[in-house]
Structure formats: structure tokens, C-alpha cells
């Protein structure tokens, strides 16, 4: 049986590992490479590395840095941050990424998404969407949460799915870093609409939060603060989830 995944997210900025709250006030939490080595030693299910300064500064992700990380990585790796050219995708796959997360560029250029899917296959393209709730509506935000695209999240999910992307990484900016639990309501709304894997992100504060999301239709849970700031670990999460009837890889 296909297992549910627990995915640590590593946010990088200026060579350092950071964590923010609501996409603001980043705190440096260490160096990236030692963290990657630890997660490899513990054989976590997958890693997501996002360069949160690339789109904000309109620069490219640091390919050399990712290449160095990849040298020490033998687990599945998703990489994102300012990806807006097919050449970026090709380079990152060559370096050692397995999936590429695309966010801001999707709003500017749907053709780019189509071409990415055509060239590299659906399985390779992860659509990352960051959203905030305003007047009870979930609205999409780009450029690391700084630009309101005034697009309804549910409609945008349907649009991207029709373009052939292979997976969603959905992050609630309101819940990000708060450790108050994932946006379960969203999972309920999209459960019947989405037929590709969903990684839910933003708000994880306990193993129970993961359990609730996985029971509400998420295929994977991404988490960051919980692993940086508490004693909880991906393997601890899996033991807990296993005891609670979720199929995980132990």
C-alpha cells in the first residue's frame, strides 16, 4: 500500500536555514547541510527545500548550493524558489532534485506550467500555493506571500490541476509557524475535487495535527517549526501515526 508521507520543509535564505511565522520575521535556525545529513541518517520520507529569497529578490535559486546539498542526499528531494524557466527545472533535476516546486511563475505564465509538464512529466511538477484568508475567502499569494493575486484558492487549484501538474503543496500563510494545526477545513473542501497528491503545510504543532490532516484527505504532511523548535521528530510522528491506523513507512 502507498504510504502517507511526513516531510520536513527546509527554508533557506542567504545560505542559512530559517523559519518564519506567517511568512514574516524569519529566524535563523541553523545551517542547512548538517540538517540534511541528519534527515538522511534518519531516512525521512522526503525533503522539501525552498529558497524563500529567490522570488522576492528576483534572483535564481543558488544551483551550486543545491548541488552541494544533493551530494549528501539519498532521499527524495523537492526543490523550489523562483523557478520560472524550463532551464531551471532541467538544471535542478540534473543536480539531484526529484520534483520541482513552482509557485509565483504560475500566475504570470500558464504556458510555462504546461511546457514544464510536457517536458518533464506531471510527476515532476509540484504546484506550491500560498494562501491567506480574507473575508472568509482563501486568496492566493505569490512572491513568498507578499503579493495578493486576488485569486480564489479553490479555482486556482482546479486550473492548475487541469494544466497537468502532479502534486499540490498547499500552505496557509495565516497558520504558518503558529503550530496551531493545519487547515483541515480546506482539506474537506478540496477532497472530492483533487485527484493528484496533496501535501498540506502550515500550522503543524503536534503529531495529532498530522493525524487529523492525513485522515482528512492529505497524502503527505509538511512541517518545519515542530521539528526545529520541539523535541518531536519525523520518526516519532510515524510511530504515533502507525499506532493510530495510518499507513506510514517505518
Amino acid at each position: 500500500m502507498l504510504k502517507k508521507r511526513i516531510i520536513p520543509t527546509l527554508l533557506i535564505k542567504n545560505m542559512g536555514l530559517v523559519k518564519d511565522v506567517n511568512f514574516l520575521s524569519e529566524r535563523r535556525v541553523g545551517s542547512v547541510l548538517p540538517q540534511i545529513k541528519i534527515y538522511n541518517m534518519r531516512e525521512v520520507d522526503e525533503l522539501i527545500i525552498l529558497d524563500i529569497s529567490a522570488s522576492r529578490n528576483n534572483t535564481n535559486i543558488d544551483f551550486d548550493e543545491i548541488k552541494e546539498f544533493a551530494k549528501h542526499n539519498f532521499i527524495p528531494l523537492t526543490v523550489g524558489g523562483g523557478i520560472n524557466k524550463l532551464a531551471h527545472i532541467e538544471e535542478l533535476l540534473l543536480i539531484g532534485a526529484d520534483k520541482i516546486s513552482i509557485n509565483s511563475a504560475s500566475y504570470r505564465d500558464k504556458k510555462f506550467i504546461k511546457e514544464a509538464v510536457y517536458n518533464f512529466g506531471s510527476q515532476c511538477i509540484v504546484s506550491s500555493i500560498d494562501y491567506k484568508i480574507k473575508n472568509e475567502k482563501r486568496l492566493c499569494h505569490s512572491i513568498s506571500g507578499s503579493v495578493n493575486e486576488n485569486k480564489n484558492l479553490i479555482e486556482w487549484i482546479e486550473t492548475l490541476q487541469s494544466l497537468g501538474v502532479g502534486e499540490f503543496l498547499l500552505t496557509s500563510i495565516d497558520l504558518d509557524g503558529t503550530m496551531k494545526g493545519y487547515d483541515l477545513e480546506l482539506l474537506d473542501i478540496i477532497r472530492e475535487k483533487v485527484n493528484i497528491p496533496i501535501i498540506i503545510s502550515g500550522g503543524c504543532g503536534s503529531y495529532n495535527d498530522m493525524l487529523n490532516s492525513l485522515n482528512s484527505g492529505a497524502d503527505a504532511v509538511a512541517a518545519s517549526s515542530i521539528f526545529h523548535f520541539t523535541q518531536l521528530t519525523p520518526n516519532g510522528a510515524k510511530s504515533f501515526l502507525h499506532e493510530n491506523g495510518i499507513h506510514v513507512r517505518i
Partner: peptide, 12 residues
């Protein structure tokens, strides 16, 4: 039975 495609993740 409603499996999601692509098949992504760890399987036996």
C-alpha cells in the same frame, strides 16, 4: 479505486 495519479511516495 480512486487512486491518485501520479503515484508518488513509498510503496512496497
Amino acid at each position: 479505486k480512486n487512486e491518485k495519479i501520479p503515484h508518488v511516495g513509498w510503496n512496497e
